[in-house]
Design a protein around this nucleic acid. Structure first.
Lengths: 102, 102
DNA sequence: GGTTATGTTCTATGTTTCTAGAACACAGCA
DNA sequence: TGCTGTGTTCTAGAAACATAGAACATAACC
């Protein structure tokens, strides 16, 4: 085996309350804001002074809530917002949250 | 003394993550949806088969998050959405959540 | 192979949250 | 005053969550 497992839910299975819960944590909301530039970021890039195990935990919650997508690239990982998909599933939701998080 | 205390935060002090957290619980999201008709509802009216102590707990969280307003009237209480105020504080947020909760 | 860099998983600790029964408080009414 | 309806507060147990150190896994490079 190989290839790390970054399973993420299909967009149609994403639950509204899970999205709201994931973004109700200040640390995770900050991560989402950082990803709002549309670029891929590495976990270390997003971490700041948060320990990496804690960061990994938060990224997992965001990923499993359907908010982010994580892709392995070499020895780091690339995290991005599932903006288009989320907007199809919950029109206007992510935009409203991110805008009001400024 | 008298008059039950239903203190609610001033709208400018309402925190986004608290709003998201309050609505991340399915029971509370259902309460918010029921209140979305713009009418005042009593706690018992909203309760369904949820025990009243549990209901009181959820209503308190919604109230302290700044989402609802509770007014005592006789021996019952009147709960309503702070829709206009919330929309001023976080434009488009509540509408996006309620619409996607359907 | 050995070393370094980047993250994940494991494990443990403490906090918060959910649920709901029991007791209490208040309002209305006979 | 007593009785009933409505809801809050108290209390406790279970479950979920946040945090973070330690160990492990993977990738790149010497």
């Amino acid at each position: 085996m190989s290839e790390r497992d970054f399973t993420q839910p299909e967009i149609d299975g994403v639950q509204l309350h899970a999205v709201l819960f994931a973004l109700s944590d200040p640390t995770r909301l900050a991560i989402a804001r950082a990803l709002a530039d549309g670029e891929e970021h590495s976990a270390g890039d997003l971490a700041g002074d948060v320990p990496k195990s804690t960061m990994s935990h938060h990224l997992k919650i965001l990923r499993e809530a359907g908010i982010t997508s994580t892709r392995p690239e070499g020895m780091r990982c690339r995290v991005s917002l599932r903006r288009t998909e989320l907007n199809r599933r919950f029109p206007g939701l992510l935009a409203a949250i991110l805008k009001n998080a400024e």
